[in-house]
């Protein structure tokens, strides 16, 4: 198990190298440098040249990248080139907002999705199934920007139930969390439905019924536990996507999250900050997926056995 975790974490190294290299090269290709965000009225050409040298902009991109990686090797994510605040600190001041919103969204998404999915699966083929499938389709295809504004108009403006954005107090979580959760609800409900459908046909459910297990326990204890793995995967993907932050949702709801931080860093050509944000997001992503993987073992003993035996490939389907 430990070996498995270590191996997964080691995979982070090439990922980080590639991702950061891509960012350095792409941002170097974009017109303008961070200096262009910094120029002020009274700066003389000498001042600008001095700044260019300070940021090594007179040297090739690969030199800057090497320097950055050298710092990274020593655990130093560097400082924002615009504000001079350490990247770690910039990230961490935004991270709690993103983390909290992600957790609330995942909880809302999961709590809604699983009963909906089970409901649809148990009534597969009926009008109820079609209705819920329709709902999830709508949820999946609705742009979150539009939905967010719609919710704002309805619940912040017409009925002034929740604040129209901002990150202050519990009520401010409701609308952004619901908006981002809806997409995940849709995906997870669909996943729950299809994996429940598969499981509902399973022989062991008949065995359970033959033992006299009440129907709700048949579903909850026997069926759901077997359907968990694909559902968990969807939830994990949802969680990791939330953790990367959504610039769109953060913009609509004035949420001080990571998504906007990253987008702004790019628009200011703040390479260190942009790179740091993406690297940290990557790490979070991998960690969440790793946790999901470990949860597989928790819900499915067969996978646990594979981990224990150091199996190379995990099977996602039960």
């Amino acid at each position: 198990m430990l070996r498995y975790i270590v191996r997964r974490l080691l995979w982070l190294i090439p990922v980080i190298i590639l991702v950061s290299l891509a960012i350095y090269i792409l941002m170097d290709l974009a017109p303008g440098t961070v200096i262009d965000s910094l120029i002020t009225e009274q700066m003389t050409p000498e001042d600008i040249e001095k700044l260019r040298q300070e940021y090594d902009l007179d040297k090739p991109v690969i030199y800057r990248y090497g320097k950055y990686m050298w710092g990274l090797l020593h655990g130093d994510l560097g400082r924002s080139q615009v504000t001079g605040i350490s990247v770690w600190e910039s990230f961490m001041t935004r991270f709690p907002a993103t983390l909290k919103l992600s957790l609330v969204s995942v909880v809302i998404g999961t709590v809604l999705a699983i009963p909906i999915g089970i409901f649809a699966a148990r009534r597969a083929g009926t009008i109820w199934d079609n209705l819920t499938t329709g709902f999830t389709l709508i949820g999946q295809s609705m742009p979150s920007f539009w939905l967010g504004l719609l919710l704002l108009i309805a619940f912040a403006y017409k009925i002034q139930l929740f604040p129209a954005g901002g990150y202050r107090g519990p009520s401010s979580y409701v609308l952004p969390a619901v908006t981002s959760a809806l997409m995940m609800t849709a995906l997870t409900a669909r996943q729950t439905r299809s994996s429940m459908l598969e499981v509902l046909r399973a022989d062991y459910l008949r065995t359970a019924r033959a033992k006299g297990v009440p129907e709700r326990l048949v579903i909850r204890r026997h069926a759901l536990k077997n359907a968990w793995i694909p559902i968990l995967t969807t939830i994990g993907m949802g969680m990791s996507r939330f953790l990367a932050g959504s610039a769109v949702i953060e913009t609509v709801f004035s949420w001080p999250g990571i998504g906007r931080l990253t987008v702004e860093a790019v628009s200011q050509r703040d390479v260190t900050l942009a790179c740091g944000c993406v690297i940290l997001t990557c790490i979070l992503y991998v960690i969440v997926l790793l946790i999901v993987d470990l949860l597989y073992a928790f819900v499915d003993p067969r996978i646990k056995a594979q981990y224990a035996s150091g199996g190379r490939r995990r099977k996602v389907t039960a």
Partner: peptide, 13 residues
């Protein structure tokens, strides 16, 4: 407030 259209909303409510 990043989103323009929510600014007026915040003022109104």
């Amino acid at each position: 407030v990043a989103e323009e259209s929510t600014r007026l909303m915040q003022l109104e409510n």
